[in-house]
Amino acid sequence: MIIKQLTVFLQNKSGRLEELTDILAKNNINISALSIAETEEYGIMRMIVSDHEKALEALKAAEFTVKTTDVVSIQCPDIPGALHETLKTLTNNGIDVSYMYGYSNGGTARLIMKINNPEKAMEIIENNL
């Protein structure tokens, strides 16, 4: 399915991440998946949260540079080769993944993928997997 991801700009400086989690905690927002990619100076934090609208509002109010992005979330079996199958299908259909992150739990794995055309990707996944 297509879900909303929050993308936040973070300076690579002590305390910044804690400031962010503090705001989410105070607003009773749960994080279900996250990834942080960083350079020496700054990082981009991507996360899936329980209430993205509320989180966006709270982070904006605290002057974070933040936006929501549509991402594709799919479930696949937690077995060797499952991710490969998924990616092969997408690649064969001309779909590129810009970035992805995921986790596995209880026999299934959940993948969050940033794809230029999420609707088309969903269609292909639904028809082929």
């Binding site: 993308t7 700009f9 990619a37 350079t39 700054y42 981009i44 540079t65 933040v66 936006k67 970035y99």
Partner: peptide, 14 residues
């Protein structure tokens, strides 16, 4: 200060 969140789509943009 970065104020436009649209640059967050990728590191390339930043």
């Amino acid at each position: 200060e970065l104020i436009d969140a649209n640059y967050l789509d990728s590191f390339g943009k930043l």
